[in-house]
Design a protein around this nucleic acid. Structure first.
Lengths: 111, 111
DNA sequence: TCTTTAGTACAAGATGTATTGTACTATCTC
DNA sequence: GAGATAGTACAATACATCTTGTACTAAAGA
């Protein structure tokens, strides 16, 4: 199981991301098999960056945090903090390199 | 939940399959997010028809039965019985029509 | 400093899934 | 019919996942 950065770390709110070679097609498919997460990823594919709570119309705060964590641990997204806002974007490069055509196939399959 | 044909039915060993419109991209992605099932589907994509127990090197009998049931209920496969053997094949047509590029994207992503 | 907003942590409950063991049916061959 | 083979059914366990409630931190603005 991936370890979050502990409270003793210097940098606050730093998140763990899987290395390129730890991203699996199984993790990606599982992450995208949830309607909420597929909708989020579809939005990220169009908007460059989004804030997690732009999606509060879909589900609750805590649940969004959960789903963004799943997407992050699957290697699908990265994020940065700016003040109290968080900006999230798709990690297209490693995924398109390791699994060419996968993301396009999934995102293109639904109009 | 899908109902299997009961023991009182005339035709023996008939299985339930989802209608075209009941196939979802979420179900497909979830079904293919398992290593065993993705390997099975990759083999089916190359071999036209296969018997479930051609995959006994991967996992147990009962587990294969389980995984083939998941694939069937997701709408990914169809099967027929011939004597005591079962032959399974990919349901490419409805999937390629409803989700064009999806299966190719997933199966093409892994060499 | 106080309040508000963005976001996280954690626990809990409900549900789903993967796997195995045991027992069973169905078909073929002898 | 007897035995072997292909396959299923069901229960049980272990584990993962989704969702919500409660409580918390971190930053912005007044």
């Amino acid at each position: 199981m991936p370890q979050e950065t502990s409270a003793t770390d210097t940098a606050p709110r730093e998140l763990w991301y899987p290395e390129r070679e730890d991203i699996t097609i199984y993790g990606i498919l599982a992450a995208l098999s949830d309607p909420t997460r597929l909708e989020i990823v579809r939005a990220l594919a169009q908007h460059e960056e989004r804030c997690p709570f732009d999606f509060l119309d879909i589900t609750s705060k805590q649940n969004l945090t959960h789903h963004f964590k799943v997407l992050r641990e699957a290697g699908l997204i990265k994020s940065r903090y700016e003040g109290r806002k968080k900006f999230v974007w798709l990690r297209r490069d490693p995924i398109d390199e390791m699994f060419p055509g996968l993301l396009d196939g999934i995102l293109g399959a639904v109009k």
